[in-house]
Write a protein that binds this DNA or RNA. Structure first.
Lengths: 160, 160
DNA sequence: TGTTTTAAAGAATTATATTCATTAAAATAT
DNA sequence: ATATTTTAATGAATATAATTCTTTAAAACA
């Protein structure tokens, strides 16, 4: 049984993804020109990529400084939960809007959270009001980012 | 001297940012309807937000699984560099396409890198060929992500 | 070798982007 | 206080683009 995966993307799909990842506001007509095909054909593929959840969201990267959000931190969290019942902790963490990422990681530190706030005071506020109330949380270790050199979610998309 | 910051965003700007962050492909006409103003006026504001670098990029979130990119890792890196001359390390790290984030962090571990690859073999390959050749790198500590519960870059945008 | 699925083209219609002229209000200078 | 400049918006006109539908052709499948 040959099963690449359930998505089965061809060369044209990958080309479309590359274009949209670089500029989500590129018009369908411009894509069609770039790909050398009719706009209707491109549109159909894009719709299909959305349906298949290959395309998850069209979003805009906004400069955090423009919104005075100067603090970025990573927090490692230990929690004493039985196997399979850790969803309470992660779900509560994921609900916090300032929390951008929640990962379950290998090793002693069970969870890794990425969080962005205005300053250290607002971080502490969130930790007091939102983190502290989550049951079974043992300890946290916070790493403050001093300077960000690169920050993007773009994937490396192969040619074929 | 009262200086909120160099961006000076009003209520309407924030509303536009909220719409575009949620859906970068929303048409100008739809935004105009939502905001209750003429499309030309909206367009002018969006252009200005792009110019001021408040809007940094319109991008598409693509499902990493659709591209078989199953491995996500965070790598802490120690490097012995004099103050101010660490740009070589960070720049070399940032050049690697699979590296999504490079941060300079407080504490012993100087740098934090987020990297996404197909599997652990391809991660090792990159570490051998790209990391090992960077001068002054002392040590690395790699944290493997087992499961991602939340992953987005969206900012919390205030009403006013 | 039929049959179904998939991908695309092209034409027609509808919707949207863009440009430009104009107005009004707010901010600034005299 | 009043003239001047800047800013933000409207509305009309034109150029582009999105969308829908029909048709065709090539793959994939049974």
């Amino acid at each position: 049984m040959i099963l690449e995966n359930e998505f089965s993307l061809d060369k044209t799909d990958l080309h479309i993804l590359r274009l949209l990842q670089e500029n989500a506001r590129m018009s369908n007509a411009d894509m069609a020109r770039e790909l050398g095909m009719a706009p209707s054909g491109v549109l159909e593929r894009v719709k299909k990529l959305e349906q298949k959840n290959v395309i998850q969201q069209y979003t805009t990267r906004i400069n955090p400084n423009a919104l005075q959000q100067k603090l970025l931190a990573f927090i490692f969290i230990k929690a004493n939960v039985g196997p399979g019942c850790d969803s309470v902790v992660t779900d509560e963490l994921a609900k916090i809007p300032e929390v951008q990422e929640v990962h379950h990681v290998a090793g002693d530190d069970c969870y890794l959270v990425k969080i962005r706030t205005y300053d250290s005071a607002s971080l502490m506020e969130i930790m007091r009001t939102r983190f502290a109330v989550i049951p079974n949380m043992m300890s946290t270790r916070t790493t403050i980012v001093l300077e960000t050199v690169k920050e993007q979610q773009q994937l490396v998309i192969p040619e074929k």
